[in-house]
Amino acid sequence: MPKHFSGELLLAVLLAAAGGYVLVRTPAIVVPPSAAVAGPRLFPYLVGGLLVLIAVLLAVQVLRGRAAPPEEGEDVDPSRRTDWRAMLVVIVLFAAHALLIEPIGWPLAATVLFAGTAAALGARRWPVILVSSFALAIGLWAVFVFGLGAYLPGGPFQMWT
């Protein structure tokens, strides 16, 4: 038995659930008579089976207490405890940003995302945060819309286009 509960079990369960879903839904795929051999069900069955198999192997490893080291990175301190607050703030901000793009336009929605994320990660000087987030957002928007011809809703700045 593991000494500590490892959240990796949740990942294994997720993998098994995905595999189960694939295996259960695959028979619903209609096989056209022309594709009787090697039809559209073959590959999903293979992938679904593999998902379940790997999930089981993984669960066994996790329960036996074998873990891989968390990924390293130059800005990551693996010895720290997980800062759930900062992470949750970033997730909520990104979801809000996605919902705001169409009502208020990409430049303003991106300003909110940038300023909020910078503050959540520890930036403190609000004048600098606000100016740099708006400048970056409007600058990127202009480059992509005028320079590359991409479509990004402008919100109040749409009239410039």
């Binding site: 990924e71 800005d75 990551v76 301190d77 900062a86 970033v90 997730i91 994320t117 959540a120």
Partner: peptide, 10 residues
Amino acid sequence: TLYVASRMRH
């Protein structure tokens, strides 16, 4: 970004 946010080296 989420990973860095969760355990940032200050």
